[in-house]
Design a binder for these strands. Structure first.
Lengths: 164, 164
DNA sequence: GGACGATACTGCGATCTCGCACTATCGTGA
DNA sequence: TCACGATAGTGCGAGATCGCAGTATCGTCC
């Protein structure tokens, strides 16, 4: 055991993977509370946010973006559609697919949730001080690495076979 | 619009909160795959890991640690107990509570899952290179800030009342 | 030592998540 | 142009998550 430093109240298990996991649980809980009044939860707010930032994404892109299984994304879209927050438009590049777009009502809901979210983000950013940018940078790096690991992982035995 | 940099394939929405969320989704997906064969999922593996590191935690501590509602932790414990992986021992400090301990079988399951997890962790750590420690440090800081924000947040209107 | 609000846990039920199996379309090769 | 494996999306069902409401115990103030 090398760095047994922490141990204040929270056994951190001291490895990057757990660190992100723990930080994200806290983040999600916080955001859940912050946007609750809008009727969205943290995950949904995230999805509304990408949709608001792009103008139409295919379900599979959404799935890749948020590292979620296709079925989960499928039910998200169903739910959002039922709410009238999202609309499906044909995907000119692929007939099996379609694009998901936020409707006006969807944008409104997103804005509404944003009203709860922004103060929280501001507070965290403020507390982070000048490190905020650095933090963003590092998380991006980590994310890229994780995406890389996802490809090279065994998963369910993809293409190659002669590695032994 | 200031920093519209990213945009390779992944609209990052460029703020710390989304960054962690995204990184964590990727992490969870990866770990889920890595430990699947052991019968655990990423979240469960994390819980087994703290339990293995401490020798007994109260449900409420567990809940605080992983930022989960009490009911969720409650059903975790029920599930783990049913698997024979966990045992409840009386909490000498509080009669309303108890301590959750990993049984031998629980430890075995954790080790088993670890066999899938460690290669992944190694790979990520290796790719992170010398930045790994720094990363850990920063995530710890962020986590601390988030924990702080959780207290000072409105939540459901805790103590004070005369603010309007 | 009793009253009483705060805190620890749990049963229940509504809703969400996601693996499996299936259909539709794409893209490549002959 | 047709065959065929790969890829996009979905219905379904099992199980997981978590809010609400309820019980037990604690701590504190009279």
């Amino acid at each position: 055991m090398g760095t047994e430093s922490g141990s204040d109240l929270s056994p951190s298990l001291g490895n990057v993977l757990f660190d992100v996991w723990l930080a994200a649980r806290a983040t999600t809980a916080l955001v859940d509370d912050a946007v609750r009044a809008s009727g969205l939860n943290a995950d949904e707010f995230a999805v509304y946010s990408v949709l608001a930032a792009t103008d139409g994404m295919a379900p599979s892109d959404l799935a890749r973006w948020m590292s979620a299984p296709a079925t989960t994304v499928s039910s998200y879209i169903g739910r959002f559609t039922r709410r009238g927050h999202v609309r499906r438009v044909p995907n000119p590049e692929d007939g099996r697919s379609y694009l998901v777009q936020l409707t006006e009502a969807g944008r409104a809901a997103h804005l509404d949730a944003g009203r709860g979210f922004l103060p929280l983000l501001d507070e965290v950013t403020r507390r982070l001080g000048p490190d905020a940018d650095e933090m963003h940078e590092r998380l991006a790096v980590l994310h890229r690495i994780l995406a890389g690991a996802a490809d090279s992982s065994p998963e369910a035995g993809p293409p190659s076979e002669g590695h032994a």
